[in-house]
Amino acid sequence: MSVRSIVATVIICLPCFASAQGFAGLGSQADGFAIPEKGYGLNFPADHGPHPNFRIEWWYLTANLKDDDGHDYGVQWTLFRSAISPGEDTGWSSPQLWMGHAGLTTPKHQFYAERLARGGIGQAGVTAEPFAAWIDNWEMLGTDPTLNQLSLTASGSDFAYDLSMQAQGPLVLHGDAGYSVKSSGGQASYYYSQPRYDISGTLTLPDGAVIVNGQGWLDREWSSQPLADDQSGWDWFSLSFDSGEKLMGFILRGDSGDYSSGTWIAADGSSKPLLPGAFQAQPLTYSEVEGRTIPVQWQIKLPEHGVSATIQAINDQSWMGTSFPYWEGPVTISGSHTGHGYLEMTGYD
């Protein structure tokens, strides 16, 4: 394994979902990093920007798009930040490492690319005023200190996209005003979303350019605490129902039982955290993906809101073969509720 892939693995594993072999070289969880505290009030626009004293952070956009002929597309744009040690420094000595992932899914094909960069030299970073997040020539740029109006670009050797996004509602703070608990042991993160973007733009595929429209969902999360030792992976759902309601739900799989939580977002944008265990998801069918067996159809239930629906991957092979590989792709919803969304699954070996 090269140094690069180890670094990349560390970056993505760090926040929470490390596999059982642990957190090579990171020592105890504190290490001088700040820790999420209950009762901290999120402060915008400053909190749109980076938090170098926390170990891990991300700006995570997923979008369900359609072209004029009604074909489905999924787009992912993620910028991870990971600190080797807290704080910032200039030049190559900066302890901040950045990693970008871009994905483009069609029903038949999956395209993806990865970028790594050092902080401190300007190759990658995030500013809050005006909002800008970038790594190499991949950019998520705002026109003002809010996240309301964003442009998004990324390109790999065989794909590219250029999208513009318009927020259609308020930010949603998960958990307790943005303090989101991740295990029964108390590990937590700061977590907020903008789940309602109208998106239009151009995808560039090997066959040529495609004009698309659709909806997007942006997640913002930062933390310093790894998950509990026994947690081996997670299944994360961001679902938009045709009723205008939305559901974010996740299951952290662990040896001593799964931990699930999430947020219910009403059509008017108001939100309510779910109690642990309220959100349930069961795999229905599996698919062979890159030599692993991965569930690509799920049954989800949220009895308190009358949700009992089937989640179906648009492309079973939505595999991100990056340094730290995982499954991430667009899904359709049928059953008690209909709609579309995004599914992310890690830890299936």
């Binding site: 140094v3 670094v7 560390v10 090579a24 070289g25 080797i84 040690s85 000595s93």
Partner: peptide, 14 residues
């Protein structure tokens, strides 16, 4: 650069 024997981030960290 053998990574087996050395903590990988060590090389990057002061």
């Amino acid at each position: 650069m053998p990574t087996s024997a050395v903590p990988p981030l060590d090389t990057l960290t002061s």
